Every structure is written in structure tokens, then in C-alpha cells.
Computed example of a mutant assay.
Amino acid sequence: MNKTWTVTGKAGGTRGNAARPSLWLTVLSLAAFVALIALGVWQIERRAWKLALIDRVEQRVHAPAQPIPAPAAWPMVSTANDEYRHVSVAGRFLHDRETLVQAVTEEGPGYWVLTPLQRDDGTQVLVNRGFVPSERRDASTRRDGNPDGKVEITGLLRMTEPKGGFLRNNVPQHNRWYSRDVAAIAAARGLHEVAPFFIDADAGSQSAGGPIGGLTVVRFPNNHLIYALTWFALALMLAGKLFVTFGGGLFRRGRFVQEPAGGSDAAARRTGSDAGTIVEPT
């Protein structure tokens, strides 16, 4: 004898006819989950790289000053291996060829004073002597701070900035400078055999009445942990949504009503828009 079970669900359909996500949506959701996890892992790796970079730069900045690289090594100087090295260089300033580069510092808006330093071997190095406010832009206002004789400068080796400032490009023909582009400044000032980097002079190298040195900001944003947690949180939320979509039905309970086969009540239930019939052999 067979038993007839009538399953009553929500209006508009039965459990057997419940809508399921399409295949492409399922694949897209799984791909998004994998991508979010990958982004989180990538940010963790980036954080490890950034911490190593910060540690390496800190060691360079606080190391004893060493002579700048020899001219033969200039083509090999790179950001990864040399930027922010504590270096020293000696020579005579060419004050008549200085270049003012717009800057905003803890002292306010003004200019960096970049002056070529002529070395005994004939090569030249651009030195960022420091900051001057706008009212001291004219070199005549700070002649007492411009040493004439041989000087020794210590500071941090910095890489050239050829891409201009934020949303602003250098205009050499109008003597407007927004970044410390060594090659462009050298060409504009008629300099030759110039190092492909410049030196940020430290506070100990400044002269009375001259630009304010030692204002280099060494700071590296390190928000990678926040980014990683964000990606992982989004992946977790997506996983929860997938679980509800595909596994939530396991926890939903339908109403099963046993009716004698052929009974009028059962027939009525079976013909309802929200009913289905399951026949189970006994």
C-alpha cells in the first residue's frame, strides 16, 4: 500500500520548484570569493614588504655619512638600493645657477633652493640646501647665507623627480618648477657631468641666514593591514551569502500532511497551487 504525502510550502511554489541561482551567477560568485581572498593575501604580502622597506630606510638614514657614489657607479644608482642613504659631498656652490622649486613644508609654503655643487673632479651634484619662504625667494635677500668657499655637505641621497609635481608639470622656459627633476634643471642651467640624483642637505649643513635644511620627510604610508582585513571581511560576507543561498534549504522545514490515498481532502490539497504530492511505497 502506498502512502501519499502532501507537501505544503509558501504561496507561489513548492520546495521542489524553488528557484536556484543560474550557473553563471554561481561561477561569478565563487570567482569573486577567490579574488577577494587573493587580494587580502596580496595586501598581507605588501605589508611585509613595506615593513622591510621602512626598516631598511631607517637604517640608511641613521647610518654614518658615507661619500656619494663615484661617477662610474652613477648609472647603477637606484631607488631600491640607494635612496635615503646618508651621504657626504664636498665642493663649491654655484649660487648664480640655483633653482627654486615650489614646496610646502612644516615651515609653510615657499621654495626649495637647489644649488649645483662643483666638485674638484669636475663633476657636479645638485644640493637641496633647504627651504626659504616666499619673501626670501630673491637671492639678494640671503646673500649672507651663501658660502663662497669650499664646503662639505651631509644629507640624504634622493632620486630625481622627472614626472613633475602633483597635477603640475615643470615649465623650464618660464622658470617654474614643481619637482626636483635633475636632468631638466641641469639642462636649463647649462650644467654638465651632473649626478643623476640630488642631496637633501641636513640641518648641520645649513649656514646662518641661508635656507633651512633638515626638513626631509621620511614617511611611508602603511595601511595594508586595514586593506587586507577589508578584503577578508568582504570574502566572509560573500561566503555567508553563498551558504544561505545553497545551504539554507537544509534548515527550512516544510509541512508534511499524511492523507489516505484517494481521500477528498488529499485531492483538494494536491490540486492547490502551493501543494505537491509525494507517493512513498511501503
Rank of each mutant, 00 (worst) to 15 (best):
N2Q: 11
K10F: 15
A11D: 10
G16A: 14
L23F: 13
T26N: 10
L30Q: 04
L30N: 06
A31S: 13
A31Y: 10
A32M: 13
L36H: 05
L39R: 05
G40C: 08
V41R: 08
I44K: 09
L51W: 04
L53R: 11
L53I: 03
D55R: 13
R56K: 12
I68S: 06
P71T: 06
A72H: 11
A73H: 12
M76P: 03
E83T: 13
Y84K: 04
Y84W: 11
Y84M: 02
Y84T: 01
Y84V: 03
V87W: 04
V89C: 02
V89S: 01
V89I: 13
H95R: 05
T99G: 08
T105Q: 07
T105V: 09
G108T: 05
Y111D: 09
W112V: 02
R119C: 04
G122Q: 00
V127H: 03
R129T: 05
R129N: 05
V132W: 05
V132A: 10
D138Q: 08
A139F: 07
S140W: 09
G145F: 08
G145Y: 10
N146R: 15
G149A: 07
V151R: 09
E152Q: 14
I153N: 01
G155K: 07
L157T: 03
R158V: 06
P162C: 07
K163D: 14
G164N: 06
G165D: 04
G165A: 06
F166R: 15
L167Q: 15
V171K: 14
H174E: 15
Y178S: 09
Y178D: 07
S179T: 06
R180I: 12
A187L: 06
H192A: 13
A195R: 04
F198R: 05
D200F: 09
D202L: 00
S205P: 00
Q206P: 12
G209F: 05
G210S: 01
P211E: 01
I212K: 15
F220D: 07
N222R: 08
H224G: 04
L225R: 03
A228Q: 04
A233K: 04
A235T: 11
M237L: 15
A239F: 12
G240V: 10
G248T: 03
R252P: 00
R255Y: 13
F256Q: 06
Q258P: 11
G263P: 03
G272V: 07
S273T: 14
D274L: 12
V279M: 11
V279Q: 11
P281H: 06
T282Y: 14
T282K: 15
